[in-house]
């Protein structure tokens, strides 16, 4: 059986108040609160999507109890790569002791690049092409100063080790739904992403996720009530709640994995971090429906069944909640400096 053998998250310790961001720009301070994101995480000046990926991967490897050198693919999804050209995956593979006998790839598909990697990994491992794979979603806050994205764009990473061995969550089924939908983009060379405002909702987020999730449930003869935990992509805290209601999922099913309400939207790590928190709390026999979404646009729906081994490995690495609780408030100016949005002109 193929599935997830180890999981790990990383959230940096710094938080900025989204109300403070709104006040700074003379906007309505109630707007970020209506998105359900009172504060968001950001990395320190020495952190980026590679360093966050490293720590999330260390945690996933500890729980997987698999030798790094036996991993046959490192796949990272990010839209905030430190280098435009030069793979993050090779830095991570080398730093973790996985290189040189491995495939290594950086992928881009807005927030679902890492999820595309998870589908590849599950397929390649089950076919026996590789023994294990490491899949990482990692992003730093990229909202342009003054844009509404600034209220939610946060920093964090999550990683999964995929294997036929040591499985804690067995894959039952997965389904992907992709169309060309221009809801959010960043042109080559531009520093900040653009988006289609209201267009990011119905034709993009909701249409793709509803289509993928409905099809997955249908072809497995399941109803929303059969699922223990529902973890969709979470650009803010409002969209997932609305999606759950439309599809017939309850708060008991989705609130546990709704980490955006605590730390903001971590892009490629958004649904993944929610999934790591659910795995921290899941019991054998639970059915988890995880559904990442990426603009441009596509959605994946995965069905996992939790296995006995999960109880033995939960405490081998820090829980996602422990990273969420470990926080230090910084002001907006510090946020701008830490995230490289303002530069010192005098050296």
């Amino acid at each position: 059986m193929v599935g997830i053998a180890g999981w790990g998250a990383y959230v940096p310790p710094y938080r900025v108040s989204t109300e403070e961001i709104a006040i700074h720009w003379g906007a309505d301070p109630l707007t970020p609160l209506s998105l359900g994101v009172p504060e968001k995480s950001l990395g320190g000046p020495d952190e980026d999507s590679v360093t966050m990926a490293w720590e999330a991967s260390m945690n996933a490897l500890k729980r997987a109890q698999i030798e790094p050198k036996d991993i046959g693919m490192v796949f990272i999804g990010s839209e905030s790569k430190p280098y435009a050209v030069k793979p993050s995956a090779s830095i991570i593979a080398d730093a973790l002791g996985i290189a040189p006998e491995t495939m290594a790839v950086d992928a881009e598909f807005a927030c679902r690049a890492a999820s595309e990697g998870l589908r590849h990994a599950l397929s390649m491992v089950s076919k026996g092409t590789i023994r294990h794979a490491l899949i990482i979603g990692s992003d730093t806050a990229q909202g342009a100063p003054g844009d509404v994205l600034e209220y939610t764009a946060a920093s964090g990473a999550a990683a999964f080790v995929v294997s036929n061995e040591n499985v804690v969550a067995e894959l039952i089924d997965a389904y992907t739904y992709v169309t060309d939908t221009p809801d959010f983009w960043r042109r080559d060379g531009s520093q900040f992403p653009m988006h289609g405002e209201g267009f990011t909702g119905e034709p993009a987020y909701f249409h793709h996720l509803e289509s993928a999730i409905t099809k997955l449930l249908e072809r497995n003869g399941l109803k929303p009530k059969d699922i223990t935990y529902f973890v969709p992509h979470q650009p803010n805290a409002r969209f997932p709640a609305k999606l759950a209601k439309k599809l017939g999922f309850t708060k008991e099913q989705y609130l546990l994995g709704l980490t955006t309400a605590d730390i903001g939207n971590t892009y490629n790590a958004s649904a993944f971090i929610g999934m790591t928190k659910v795995l921290d709390n899941a019991s054998p026999g639970d059915l988890i429906l995880m559904a990442p979404f990426g603009s441009g646009a596509g959605a994946d729906a995965y069905l996992f069944e939790v296995k006995e081994r999960i109880e033995d490995v939960k405490n081998l690495a820090p829980s996602t909640q422990s990273y969420i609780d470990r926080k230090v408030r910084v002001d907006y100016a510090t946020y701008l400096r830490y995230r490289n949005k303002i530069k010192k002109l005098v050296r």
Binding site: P45, D46, E47, D48, V50, T51, W54, E55, A95
Partner: peptide, 8 residues
């Protein structure tokens, strides 16, 4: 203290 990978 514990070691973590960072930009230096």
């Amino acid at each position: 203290v514990e070691a973590v990978l960072r930009r230096i």
